[in-house]
Amino acid sequence: MESRSEYRPETQGVPSTAQTRAHLSKSFYATKPTGGTTFFRTFLPYQIWRFIWINLKMIRIIGKSHR
C-alpha cells in the first residue's frame, strides 16, 4: 500500500474538492507561520540582533555546562 492512502482511509468514496483535500492533509492541522513571521526570519536588522542574542544565550549554556 502507498503511504499517502494509508493514513487517509477516509478518502474512500469522498469526492475530491479543495475542501476535502485540505482537511485530509496532515499539514492542514499543523501550525503555520504568518507572513510577518517568515519575513522576520530573513529581515537583516532583526537577524543581526538575533545573531547577538542567540550567541549570548549559547555562551550561557556552555558556561553552565562546564564543570
Binding site: S3, R4, Y7, K26, S27, A30, T31, K32, P33, T38
Partner: peptide, 16 residues
C-alpha cells in the same frame, strides 16, 4: 512537535 510539524507543513513535506 508543533514547531517541527509547522516547518514541514510550511515546506510542503509529508511525514510518516
Amino acid at each position: 512537535k508543533i514547531f517541527t510539524e509547522s516547518l514541514f507543513a510550511e515546506r510542503g513535506l509529508d511525514w510518516i
